[in-house]
Design a protein around this nucleic acid. Structure first.
Length: 437
DNA sequence: TCTGGGGTCCTAGGACCC
DNA sequence: TCTGGGGTCCTAGGACCC
């Protein structure tokens, strides 16, 4: 038996914990660079502002509603996520954090006498209550025999007090529930599959569940077949107790101001490469290939250009200097300031991708140079930054991340104009209580 | 008129998720 | 003026081999 615990409007909920004045007010949280709306309170959803809407399009409406607007504060959300996961760990050791705001839990199948719907509904409610009381975060809880059914249940729970159990229901009773779920809301059915299914007359989760195997296999291939089995109550997606080692890593950002000169681009790529390598070392991995990409905006006027170029590394590495050197080479190979008509390229975003990741201690190549001095260098660097780095800004970094002349501002960095305090992770941001006289 | 058969590996791109 | 960021998996098709 699986449980899905899912926070609704998680980022908004985090912002509200230390701001009770916002409980009844419309609130939105923005993506990086203050670009899009990525979390909306119920009031904002009701007003018809869609998820993913760019801020500049919704700004007037939000002002009229008196909405509070926040930049993303991942330090805060990450800490609340940790607290929620810890709380869930008091119900079962088998917790799989699935995303920042969701987790699957697995319980041993209840004995028949405990399988009464009331008892299961009570368990779902208890999880909900405890998370709310211990962390301040409202969640929905859905119990079901498979992960995909948990996801469907979580949708149904929205209109059922936030907790639901689909365990032990007959196929007919389950079908009645799945009738309420549009096929596009089934976990694993995205826009393309939804359109495909709808043109063939399949519009609900129940119809998908009851479609013939051969037809499903032909239409949605093996992944879709797995989804259908899961809808039938046959579990195909086990709980992932340990996270699977990652295969790739990407660090990218949109620029606060468009980049037109190669020096700023070099800085940005070196900064992304440094961040990626630090994570690589934290996770004990090494990369065998590097790719950089950068592009102009897709919207609006001006010259458009999109570059994506990669190179293998001589041997697996997580040394920042190696990767930065590779990004520099790739930039030199690909940079252009103007198009054929002489119009400047205004680059909006850049990123560094590390590929073919392997464990750092695996000896991939007998002839690869062994460089213990690198290990000591980066161990020292990481230790310095852990102790003296300030919230993502390293205390010691390699020089090419700071190519600008001293005293000049970095113009490419991300915009973040509505940040809330990191209430739970920085002493200087601790909330102050004010008592009315 | 006539155009083998079978295999591997790699890459790009699609689809999906949050 | 202003449109996140970070992942995984699968498939199709090309290159190449015998």
């Amino acid at each position: 038996m699986f449980a899905l615990v899912d926070a609704s409007n998680f980022y908004v909920s985090c912002e509200r914990v230390f701001r009770p004045d916002l409980r009844e007010r419309p609130v939105v949280v923005l993506s990086n660079n203050d670009g899009c709306i990525v979390s909306r309170s119920e009031e904002v959803k009701r007003a018809g502002i869609p998820n993913g809407a760019p801020l500049f399009k919704a700004r007037r409406q939000l002002e009229r509603m008196g909405a509070a607007v926040f930049s993303s504060n991942y330090e805060l959300y990450g800490d609340f996520s940790f607290r929620v996961m810890e709380t869930l760990g008091t119900f079962t050791p088998d917790v799989e954090p699935y995303s920042i705001d969701e987790a699957f839990l697995v319980f041993s199948t209840p004995r028949p006498q405990d399988r009464h719907p009331d008892r299961l509904a009570a368990l779902a409610h208890e999880i909900r209550q405890r998370v709310r009381q211990w962390t301040g975060i409202p969640v929905r809880v859905s119990l079901a025999p498979t992960k995909t059914l948990c996801k469907a249940g979580s949708e149904l729970a929205r209109s059922r007090g936030g907790a639901i159990s689909l365990v032990g229901r007959s196929p007919e009773a389950m079908g009645a529930m799945l009738d309420e779920v549009p096929v596009g809301e089934v976990w694993g059915i995205g826009g393309a599959s939804r359109r495909k299914l709808e043109t063939r007359g399949v519009t609900t989760a129940r119809q998908l569940r009851d479609a013939p195997d051969a037809w499903v296999r032909k239409t949605l291939h093996t992944v879709g077949m797995r989804t259908v089995y899961e809808l039938r109550g046959v579990s195909c997606l086990p709980l992932e107790r340990a996270p699977t080692p990652r295969r790739t890593m990407l660090r990218s950002r949109s620029f606060g101001t468009p980049v037109t000169d190669p020096t700023a681009m070099r800085e940005a790529l070196a900064t992304h490469a440094s961040a990626a390598c630090r994570t690589l070392r934290d996770e004990g991995l090494a990369a065998q290939a590097v790719q950089v990409f950068y592009h102009t905006g897709r919207h609006g006027e001006g010259a458009h250009r999109s570059v994506s170029l990669g190179t293998p590394l001589r041997s697996p590495t997580n040394a920042t200097a190696d990767v930065v050197a590779a990004t520099r080479y790739l930039l030199e190979q690909s940079w252009a300031s103007r198009d054929a008509a002489g119009r400047p390229f205004r680059y909006k975003k850049a990123g560094v991708m590390l590929l073919d990741l392997v464990p750092a201690d695996a000896q991939a190549d007998l002839f690869a140079p062994q460089r213990p001095e690198h290990q000591r260098l980066y161990a020292a660097l990481d230790a310095l930054n852990r102790q003296f780095g300030r919230h993502g800004a390293p205390a010691v970094s390699i020089a090419s991340t700071q190519l600008r002349a001293p005293g000049t501002a970095t113009r490419w960095r991300t915009v973040c104009e509505h940040a809330s305090p990191a209430y739970t992770t920085r002493f200087d941001h601790l909330p102050a209580l004010r008592f009315a006289a």
